[in-house]
Design a protein around this nucleic acid. Structure first.
Lengths: 190, 190
DNA sequence: CGATTCTTTGAAAACAGTCAATCTGTGTGG
DNA sequence: CCACACAGATTGACTGTTTTCAAAGAATCG
């Protein structure tokens, strides 16, 4: 399964076989069952996860106990709680598998070492974070500017692969609307 | 006015006088009138702006011509359109001064050079981007999980300094609600 | 002071949330 | 292979919230 990651990385950065090998050696591959968690709230997030196969969501419970999907992840996406990972604070988020999945894992320690020793890998990660920020900003704009129906259509268009992998009520929670409202939005679009 | 920036930077990173000097030499200081723009949509964003004094907003027009405030910035904050700055694409955003302000400006070229030559400055900027991403994620959670009133209270608590510098209708646009709704939310809180 | 911008209010209409019931599809055990 | 249980999706009726539009009050600035 490491080949998936290798291929992903090679299409994005110029990196030597030796360097790839370092990255591989520092990693662990893990198969994850459906509904299994990579992170529970209240824990510190100490790993970087690369999704080689499958599907995940990062979500959070509000004080009423309702969960809200902050983001999804599929093949070739990363999953982690940046905030907890960077600060060492207890995470408020959960990461759970929405399907049988495979992840490649780096501990914070080995990740930092890789970042320090492989400049190309460091640069790659910096760009990844910068992109993640840009994507968030786009999502914020969408949330403050567009009504539910438009946000749904935008989601469909932007993430068609995610759309057909995750249940609708989670998409509703990602869009910030109730599952019933999403259901009606979809009905009215026909 | 550069002292404001110097003080800000020194409290965050360990940096030599010589390095500070390099950063200063590469910068330009500019006074900005109220309502003046640092960036217009349709342009490429080619600068990093540090707000030494005053207040700004980054906003975007939707297809109806309504503007939506994506974020505010005051003293010791940064302003730029990351997406356009990094990619070189035309920006969809505008940055305007909400008060008489002073900014310190670095062109992309000199910024990149500073990043390449001063490791501490590079590290500082990486962390800045990482934080910005964490903050966005928090805001996304707030937008999908909390009703208008709670978001307003949260904003008040998180950004009290911004609150008493910007007009209410812009706060409404930041919260993703109409100015009338914000007005009523405030009335009902008394 | 007048002009402009900002904020508030009222009333009606549009929209979204809740609750409870029903429908659909999937998978399991007999 | 069927019947049942279960999770997910949809619907209807109702309630509550938010938007819209128009108008009227404040506040600010030249």
């Amino acid at each position: 399964m490491f080949e998936v990651f290798e291929k992903y990385l090679r299409t994005l950065v110029d990196i030597s076989d030796e360097e790839i090998n370092c990255i591989r050696t520092a990693s662990t591959i893990k198969n994850i069952k459906k509904w299994q968690s990579l992170l529970h709230d209240g824990e510190v997030c100490k790993s970087m996860f690369f999704i080689a196969d499958g599907c995940f969501r990062l979500y959070r419970y509000d004080k009423e106990g309702t969960d809200h999907t902050v983001r999804f992840g599929i093949e070739n996406w990363w999953m982690t709680d940046q905030e907890s990972y960077n600060s060492g604070n207890l995470s408020k988020y959960n990461i759970e598998a929405l399907a049988k999945s495979t992840v490649i894992i780096w501990s914070k320690h080995s990740w930092d070492e890789l970042q320090a020793t492989i400049p190309a890998f460091k640069k790659f990660y910096e760009q990844l974070v910068a992109r993640a920020f840009e994507t968030s900003q786009q999502r914020i704009y969408s949330l403050i500017s567009s009504p539910a129906e438009e946000r749904y259509l935008e989601f469909l268009k932007t993430y068609p692969k995610i759309f057909n992998k995750v249940p609708l009520h989670m998409i509703a929670s990602y869009l910030g609307i109730s599952r019933e409202t999403l259901s009606r939005v979809r009905r009215d679009l026909l």
